[in-house]
Design a protein around this nucleic acid. Sequence first.
DNA 1: GCAAAAATTGAACATCGTTCATTAATTTTT
DNA 2: AAAAATTAATGAACGATGTTCAATTTTTGC
Lengths: 200, 200
Amino acid sequence: MGRRSDHSREELQSLIVEATLDLVKEHGAEKVTARQIAQAVGYTPGTLYSVFINLQDIFLHVNELGLSTLFEQCAKAMSAQTEPFAAIRSLGIAYLEFATNNTHQFDLMFARADSPSEEAPAAIQTRIRSMFDLIEEQLRILNPDATTAQVKLGARALWSGVHGTATLRLSDQLYLDRSSSDSDVVDMLVNNFLRSWQHR
Amino acid sequence: MGRRSDHSREELQSLIVEATLDLVKEHGAEKVTARQIAQAVGYTPGTLYSVFINLQDIFLHVNELGLSTLFEQCAKAMSAQTEPFAAIRSLGIAYLEFATNNTHQFDLMFARADSPSEEAPAAIQTRIRSMFDLIEEQLRILNPDATTAQVKLGARALWSGVHGTATLRLSDQLYLDRSSSDSDVVDMLVNNFLRSWQHR
DNA sequence: GCAAAAATTGAACATCGTTCATTAATTTTT
DNA sequence: AAAAATTAATGAACGATGTTCAATTTTTGC
């Protein structure tokens, strides 16, 4: 078979990315093969390489998507709150919920990999900046006297805490006792951090 | 060639694990192949499977080693401090130092994987317990009135923070600005957390 | 309708993890 | 000391992987 053109280049691109996301969600990234993706979109493996550089390149675009929805869910959870304290807490919970409800996807999102394309990382960086902005905004409200550097540092520290909670939660091995719930850990972390932050 | 017996079973086992660790440190786990490991220890790939179940099984034993040294380095850094506050700070710095100095190894250690053997995870859990104990001990000193549950939760929260800092540091993508140093983030996190913890 | 361009294929390549019958060395038994 | 049994290690093979690319077919522009 030769040229078909049932889909434009961009259509095919997002078709592949979405099919890959589905496969990742179901089986985990390690088990997803080029041939599987190709079959899912109704093409042959070779076609993938006319639209993307690599399998890794495809995964990068999947992560772009993942970061977007993670950001949206966090932003939505925050917007439901009026107080900065509660807002940050909600962000943490939302973050953890995403991680536990989309285990495989989250794993892929933060698994390190040397990136083959230049476009994807840029798009990804933008999305991460948005996450930071979300936190920095609240930290500023909570303590207007803090310098910009302090706010940036604080946001990174807070996010690191939330992210670490999610990460450790996912490495099942690490969870010896099932006693502590996600929200308990986030509460402990966020409350203690913010209480000091407020009175710094 | 047939039987050689230059090494006992256990010798061969630790030979393989150490060779694998070297390869992981240099090239990253994804690039390490069974054939490479076999060549490094002077055997053929088949031999690996008479000593371990899997490549994954080998990696698990590598991680056992990794967690041991991580723990030792943290414990050592802590023991140099007398004050609990400084002790926990030192632990955080040591943790981050290990992560940045052993990027590939750290990646492997906390990359999730369904474990094929039953022995390794048990050994790994023991080592993780030790890490928790280290933190819990200091938290208890810092606030003797805290309940056991609170101490456990606090330790998990703190470790999550440190771990998250390390994790995010490693996903280069995430670091848009190189302004904040590792120790700054840890300071921000640990100081704010512990200040509240003390006066809870 | 025809030539040029573009899209898709499918066969091929090297490499991967893993298995297992075969072989060679060592122990054990006689 | 020879034969038998056991163990260690091999290496060839299998199926599956990511990736490449000449060949083929369809669309497009003239």
